[in-house]
Write a protein that binds this DNA or RNA. Structure first.
Lengths: 221, 221
DNA sequence: TAAGTTATGTTGTTTTTACAACAAAAGGGT
DNA sequence: ACCCTTTTGTTGTAAAAACAACATAACTTA
């Protein structure tokens, strides 16, 4: 498929002029792959030297422990980049990458990205800068998630998460990208316990919700 | 103080030849500062454009919520780098940086690091590559911490943490860099609850410990 | 060394969570 | 419309954690 419009929007290439982009991409050993729904692209423990760009569909970064508890680390969509950490560090992946639907991915060589090539690629140093920003943003994302899950109880985790969503959309009413089980996995709590906590919060007038659409009823920190 | 030997060992500069280092550093607007014990170098919400290198002493990255719960995100020592994320993203800091003892820090301009300068700095692109690796490693560190705190109960968190320490030192007996309160803050649990859980684990023969020295008694995942 | 301070361990109570089992609701496809 | 599957909500119980209060040990420093 035509990856260029999507790549042009991604954090990694949004400063590169559309004219230069095809040449630049061709430098990075691009490989496209299409996966069905619920396909595991990367397994925990895998080692690789390419990062992935989601061209269509969506993916989850998840971890599983020995008792089957699942932790949802992040959900990524079109234009988002994954596996950059494991590719940069050459260490084993701590997460699995699983498709949520039929998904097309473009893989690019990290070695080629961070190693400046000869003068032909005048724009090359631009994407290295972007690579730095990308990693810093990922970092920030992890810290934000940490802000939620380090809360001491379920209600605080929920309020922390919902507040962030409201903040992100700039409105007290918003739709979250998770179903209940996914939200529970994301916040590291039991689904049913979370569900009943949501019920309590609704009956106390703190929040309102139907399906994935929530509304915060009071100012909360 | 003479920062060069320490910088030469740091992730950011360890590939730069010692001869080139002074020139390179001077490009990066270096500023040295000395802080007393328990001094807050960076407050949550601060915005800055410099990263810091610990030249002597040690620091904690911490977060506080409104109920006074403290979360210890990481502990850094000589040669370690902090504030690179907030400096790269130009967003508000999510953590505070507090000294554990008298500490000397060297600040360097992130703008100068990631923007390639004129040809004079032939080694410049080398540290950009290092910057990428540094951020990726930080990322990995956050994921590892996440592996611990996403565990469902205190014992699993402890085992996860202790296993990692054992793995890191390559021995079943090791000394951890935290006291009990700090460990509790790191694992996001109550100190006394953690203390009693440690007691149970000892009485069950799982572990042995005195002060900060632990020993794992059985094979555990 | 004595007194004060900090760190750690212990215990009991209250609150919260996980877990299990089930009911109700919502979709999906034929 | 019907059956089947998935999602969500509800409830009760058992387990775990937070909390508070205190005992003891270790460490400082005057």
């Amino acid at each position: 498929m035509n990856a260029l419009p999507i790549l042009a929007q991604s954090v990694l290439f949004n400063t590169v002029s559309p004219d230069d982009l095809p040449h630049l991409i061709s430098c990075l050993k691009p490989k496209e792959a299409t996966y069905p729904k619920d396909y595991t692209i990367i397994e925990e423990g895998d080692v690789l030297d390419e990062l992935g760009v989601v061209l269509s569909g969506s993916i989850h970064l998840v971890r599983h422990d020995f008792w089957g508890n699942r932790t949802l680390v992040a959900q990524l969509g079109v234009g988002d980049i994954f596996a950059e950490t494991v590719a940069c560090t050459a260490e084993k992946s701590l997460v699995s990458v699983v498709t949520c639907e039929k998904t097309v991915v473009l893989f690019l060589s990290v070695q080629r990205i961070i190693t400046t090539c000869r003068s032909e690629c005048v724009f090359h140093h631009a994407i290295i800068e972007n690579m730095v920003r990308l990693l810093a943003q990922k970092n920030l994302g992890l810290m934000k998630k940490m802000n939620h899950i380090t809360k001491r109880n379920t209600r605080e985790k929920l309020l922390s998460f919902l507040s962030e969503q409201a903040w992100k959309t700039g409105s007290k009413a918003f739709t979250i990208p998770f179903d209940r089980q996914q939200l529970a996995d994301y916040l590291c709590v039991d689904r049913s316990a979370m569900s009943s906590e949501l019920g309590k919060m609704k009956s106390e007038g703190l929040i309102e919700f139907t399906k994935n659409t929530f509304e915060l009823k009071q100012s909360m920190l």
